[in-house]
Write a protein that binds this DNA or RNA. Structure first.
Length: 313
DNA sequence: TATCCGTGGTA
DNA sequence: TTACCAAGGAT
């Protein structure tokens, strides 16, 4: 909703009457931004030269994927396709191949589709409006806001798992559960953002970085946290989450594992592959067939001829 | 809203 | 070793 992106900046640290919460402390952002200045990682997509396209590519790649695995793929990707038009001009299968083992390869397909949409609808330039970004394939609430903030230096609440955890702890004094980002989360974070857009964009990056490096999920490094004296969760004795744990993810033996193996064969092949070769990656024929059918349905694989498969060309 | 969608690092 | 975790999105 556009209205929350323009939420008026902080009313000077006054607690909402009667809520019993800690005041939305405007000092919080300052502290975290200062910390960011001293401890931020030097990531290539944070350099101005990366441009909006570099930022968009990084955000898609970073979805559910650690930074250290994204770095090399991002470098080669941007070298090969420095513009959306370059990517859009190639077959989607090339995007899937270059994606390598980043995981969730449908992201590669959607990034390829997004590049096409950027060329068609925006003259080849990554759009700077939230609604236009959101309309791109593979771009959801988080990614649209991240690109608008980090590439175009706009003031938006950018909430990923790191920010959610940080705000739950520091502001709400609780452990974040596994639930989706809520309207309340958006309001809480919007209230933390400084009024100046550039500073707000920097604060958004800073919150994420703090969550990624200090306010981490398993063993937070509170002694190293710039906000420790203002943290409701620490003050409350670091209580565990009262929310039910999410169902274990599981991987071994799932369709996802089979899909991954099938796609790996096709990615590593230079051309079309015989069914026989694919059959070797998994013994159980029913699950194998289901996995292949899923890849075909998703457009990650095409059938060139009976019993012959390849990445889309 | 719950489930599906990869892969690899870490404790 | 198992289980958790990682800059989410689509359906």
């Amino acid at each position: 909703m556009a209205s929350m992106t323009t939420t008026t900046p902080m009313t000077a640290g006054a607690a909402p009457p009667g809520t019993g919460q800690a005041p939305a402390n405007p000092v919080l952002a300052d502290l975290v931004v200062d910390w960011f200045g001293a401890h931020a990682r030097d990531l290539p997509w944070r350099h101005p030269e990366a441009g909006p396209w570099g930022v968009l590519v990084s955000e898609i790649m970073l979805q559910q994927t650690p930074v250290h695995r994204v770095l090399p793929v991002w470098e080669t990707w941007l070298r090969r396709w420095p513009t959306p038009a370059g990517l859009a001009a190639e077959p989607s299968g090339e995007a899937v191949r270059e994606w390598g083992r980043l995981g969730y390869p449908r992201r590669a397909l959607r990034l390829h589709q997004a590049a096409g949409a950027i060329v068609e609808r925006h003259g080849g330039a990554v759009p700077d409006q939230l609604d236009d970004l959101l309309a791109l394939p593979g771009v959801g609430t988080y990614t649209a806001r991240a690109v608008a903030a980090f590439a175009f230096r706009q003031r938006h609440a950018v909430i990923d798992v790191n920010v959610r955890r940080f705000v739950a702890r520091a502001v709400e004094g609780t452990a974040a559960g596994p639930t989706a980002v809520s309207r309340r989360d958006l309001e809480l974070v919007a209230d933390l953002l400084p009024a100046d857009p550039e500073t707000a964009a920097r604060a958004s990056a800073a919150f994420m970085e703090l969550g990624a490096l200090v306010c981490v999920a398993r063993a937070p490094r509170c002694p190293a946290c710039p906000v420790q004296e203002h943290c409701g969760w620490l003050a409350a004795g670091s209580p565990p989450s009262d929310a039910p744990a999410r169902r274990p993810q599981g991987y071994a033996g799932t369709d996802r594992q089979v899909r991954g193996r099938l796609l790996a064969v096709l990615r590593d092949a230079t051309g079309p592959v015989e069914q026989e070769l694919l059959d070797q990656v998994w013994d159980e024929p029913v699950q194998r067939g289901r996995a292949l059918a899923g890849l075909l349905a998703d457009g990650l694989v095409v059938r060139c001829a009976p019993g012959v498969y390849a990445l889309p060309t």
